[in-house]
Nucleic acid binder design. Structure first.
Lengths: 234, 234
DNA sequence: TAGATTGTTAATCGATTAACAATC
DNA sequence: TAGATTGTTAATCGATTAACAATC
């Protein structure tokens, strides 16, 4: 569910030697990871691309290509070491060096993310929440303090927080992003359905549920619209 | 943030005449919609691809291509009618014929989605929630009843619900999906980070936050790892 | 050794971008 | 009319898939 429109702006200075990986491959890695952790729990030591592909509904060659981006080396005939593969993926994705993050927008979605303990397994640690509504400042949600927005920039700087999460309404998102940039935040995970205007060096990742819903509802609507024998395409 | 791994299985029976649109275009449509609604509120009657592109950070030709999939017809020199474009996108995406949905998993994320009133503007109406934990059955969240999971299949059938949303933990997702299929649900919006095994005709849309987080944290980790002059690629 | 599976290079496919004629 | 912008067809670019040699 996710389109990162900021990605469409490519630098003309592309260098072939810089480490690179296609977006789709990057996004499949956590799925492999999840699957491999399951395998390891079952005591399985080695796995091949064909097995992974069968279980995850992907063609083996795609699995192999994806895994190769992480730098893992397999053994012909026996495949990859499950444990080694798990560690390689985790290291590759930077899940070892924890990202401490600030979250802004203590509404329904913000509350959900604050309570989502599993994020810590993926290298994400939400250390505090903020809200532009002064009424909300001072309360605690899932053991995390909710602070007024105007404290964000200063605190982010002092704590060297590099990641910001926006779960506020669309109207406030730009103001919040500005504060984050002011505080030296490098990457923004944006759940508000708007395009943020930020300096070019800031990484923005849009998590637009509406995009996703659009795609789903189009397919569903189409099902009741299109004659059955024409449904196969797309 | 979204990868639909089920999409990778293409039918060999592809017919060129069947209506079709690239996934990325489909996902950009809600963004155009959001932008256009803003324009309309400002009293702007017509808009060109270059203007949209400038404001949304996309190249004009891409905007034009995307809009053409909806069937809209513009006027050379003056562009498109804003109002007409909004309506065309809404119709195209099926936001007029409301999708009634069941949600399963009344945890943090489920609660957030149940409380998200704006979904109704995008044709989504969550009519009831379910949970496999019998303790949760009977409570109300954001004015929606939480029912035991074993009532789902029967109710879905009787109410002809076609859309199911899974916000339960990964462990329960498959069982829930099975119930949904049993109840005649056609499309599943899956927030659990697992691949669901469902019959081929069921539309599955995976909303995997971990995929998204992976991509973001890789980029962030990379920033602190890669020398500045090599950062430009990707 | 034979067979399975990896690693790598080439071919295909689909989305994006470019080019240009048509039209207001 | 001239210029801007659409609509359409062709070229490019990147991700996926195929082919095949290398290796355990």
């Amino acid at each position: 569910m996710v389109i990162d429109m900021n990605l469409s702006i490519e630098s003309p200075l592309k260098r072939p030697d810089a480490p690179s990986i296609p977006q789709p491959s990057l996004r499949r890695l956590p799925q492999y990871h999840h699957y491999l952790v399951d395998l390891e729990a079952k005591g399985i030591g080695r796995v091949s691309c064909s097995t992974i592909g069968r279980d995850l509904n992907l063609v083996p060659i795609q699995v192999r290509k994806d895994l190769q981006y992480t730098g893992i080396i397999g053994k012909p005939k026996t495949g990859y070491s499950v444990t080694e593969l798990i560690l390689t993926i985790e290291t590759f994705l930077g899940w070892n060096n924890v990202n401490e993050a600030f979250l802004v927008g203590a509404g329904n979605l913000g509350t959900a993310l604050l309570g989502h303990e599993r994020f810590s397994k993926f290298g994400l640690q939400i250390v505090a929440a903020f809200d532009s509504d002064p009424q909300k400042a001072g309360i605690w949600i899932h053991n995390k303090a909710v602070l007024p927005l105007d404290k964000l920039a200063d605190l982010a700087q002092r704590m060297s927080i590099h990641l910001g999460i926006i779960t506020a309404p669309a109207e406030n998102a730009q103001t919040i992003a500005d504060e984050m940039v002011k505080g030296g935040i490098q990457a923004i995970w944006n759940f508000a359905p708007v395009k943020l205007n930020v300096p070019a060096h800031i990484i923005v990742h849009n998590e637009d549920l509406y995009s996703s819903l659009a795609s789903l509802s189009w397919k569903l609507a189409r099902r009741f619209r299109v004659p059955i024998q024409e449904r196969e395409a797309v």
